[in-house]
Amino acid sequence: MGKLTMGVFPGLVGSLSLDFSVKLAEAAVKKGHTVDYWVSSNATMLSKKGQRSFKDYSTLYKTLEELFKTGNFKACACEACAEARGFHKEDLMEGWIRKSMDWYLASSFDADRVLMIGGE
């Protein structure tokens, strides 16, 4: 099985690109691959705890919670991007870590595939 590293940049609300990335990560993990999932820029919103589910908006945190349980999914948020947006360490959803951008590049180093999903 392979390792997929994803760099994801779009925000939680405003496009469905983030939804696509989570779905793709889920599909990869279900196939037995491991996924390193890096969020930067507005995508750091995904790492914030306390999200509520509304019918009109995406509810991705539930999928993430399931992915974390598999042990084959790691998610990391850009610390600077989060801090700049007012998300602090205590706001982080369980399972997530926060690092600087070199975490993403290090993950890419031995990834079989790297996929970047750009922001708006």
Partner: peptide, 29 residues
């Protein structure tokens, strides 16, 4: 947008990536 800035900051981050890697391994942007 933030895109080009993010590209540059991610590329520059290659300079500190060694802390996660084995000796001699590197990322070249």
């Amino acid at each position: 947008t933030e895109a080009s800035r993010l590209a540059m900051t991610h590329a520059i981050a290659s300079q500190t990536v060694e802390i996660y890697l084995e000796d001699g391994d590197m990322v070249e942007p």
